[in-house]
Amino acid sequence: MTRPRIQPFFDAGTGTVSYVVSDPATGRAAIIDPVLDYDFKSGETSTRSADEVLAYLGREALEVDWILETHAHADHLSAARHLQERVGGRVAIGQNITEVQDVFRKLYNLERTFLPDGSQFDHLFKDGERFRIGELEVTALLVPGHTPADMAYLVDDAVFVGDTLFMPDVGTARADFPGGDARQLYRSIRRLLELPPATRVFVCHDYPPGSRAPGWETSVAEQRQRNIHVRDGVTEEAFVEMRRRRDATLEMPALILPSIQVNVRGGQLPPADDNGIAYLRIPVNALRRRVR
């Protein structure tokens, strides 16, 4: 059976790792968690990160079937629609995105035409749903806890875990966003750690300590042995207590306010006003009330 070919792209500004996963036999590919660069000071977007993905696709003569989001990210804007306009593919996410859309539609007081029904995406995955990248079979796994809509994607011996697990010396994702739940996160992680020990684990973010360079590939065995938050022997109660205590000390991600209102739209900017300019909304004195 053909193993997937995996090319990572690390965005140092947001700590995000995007991937191109391709089938060597057919040249078909999927893009996972692409980044649209955004400068908060100027309000300018740029496509530097997405252009690196496009250049790789061109060099390798790959055809895109899917653009996969693991969840509605709070730390970067999605480049899904920018990439789709250039290389095609279906933009997809987990079906629980509707819960996230409903929460943030109210927080941002989005336009009346915005419906929290997932229609902004081309496909919504159910837990356990199988699909293909060329001849590669992929299984979508629901792994809620960070948000209700988090998905992991299992491709042969590799699993792309989104915001659940980080590298072992960094630990695990936070669980204090709307709809987040530390118990659910623990159970989702244990589900992932029940995969075969040699399964390659590809994380969505890395925030490396100064002692090492950024990394993004580990294994189920390594996570079970070394993850500082959830290695074997850490109970659900201990994890929940740690996660709640730690989350209470964390600042909001720098780009949470601009990013989520784009990402719940599948990577589309809000509709332009009658002057032709799209505006991002910043709720004042409201975010922490909704999060906490």
Rank of each mutant, 00 (worst) to 15 (best):
L136G: 09
I133L: 05
E251C: 01
A30R: 09
R212G: 13
L83V: 05
Y56Q: 11
G15S: 12
Q261L: 03
V17S: 13
A50W: 05
D206H: 02
A25D: 15
A238R: 12
I260H: 11
R174T: 06
A92W: 01
R224K: 15
H82R: 10
I189D: 00
L280A: 02
Q84H: 09
E52S: 10
M252G: 06
P208V: 01
R243F: 03
R281V: 12
R105I: 06
N227V: 06
D39C: 13
T70C: 07
E137S: 10
A248P: 11
P253C: 07
E135A: 15
A25V: 06
P178H: 01
Y207T: 08
P8F: 00
L154N: 08
A278D: 09
W216F: 15
I97T: 10
H73M: 02
D169H: 11
G118L: 03
V264M: 14
P270E: 14
D127N: 15
P197T: 02
T47R: 08
Y279C: 08
S119C: 07
V170F: 00
R246G: 07
A25I: 01
L193V: 04
D127T: 05
G180M: 04
V87D: 11
A50C: 02
E52H: 12
Y153H: 09
D206C: 04
A254D: 14
R245A: 15
E236L: 09
S49A: 13
M167F: 03
L269Q: 14
F40T: 10
M151N: 09
F125P: 03
R212S: 09
D169A: 02
S78D: 12
L141N: 02
I31H: 08
H205C: 14
F160P: 03
R3L: 14
F160N: 10
G179E: 03
H71S: 10
P283T: 08
H71N: 12
D127W: 08
A79F: 04
F166K: 07
S259W: 08
A254F: 02
L62I: 01
L110G: 09
H71I: 00
E135C: 04
I260Q: 15
D33L: 04
R224S: 12
D33P: 11
P148T: 05
S259Q: 10
D274L: 15
E99W: 00
F166S: 14
G88Y: 00
A213E: 15
G179A: 05
I260W: 13
R174P: 00
P214S: 12
V161Q: 03
Q7F: 00
Q95A: 13
G94C: 03
V21P: 06
P24E: 13
A80T: 15
P144C: 07
D176S: 09
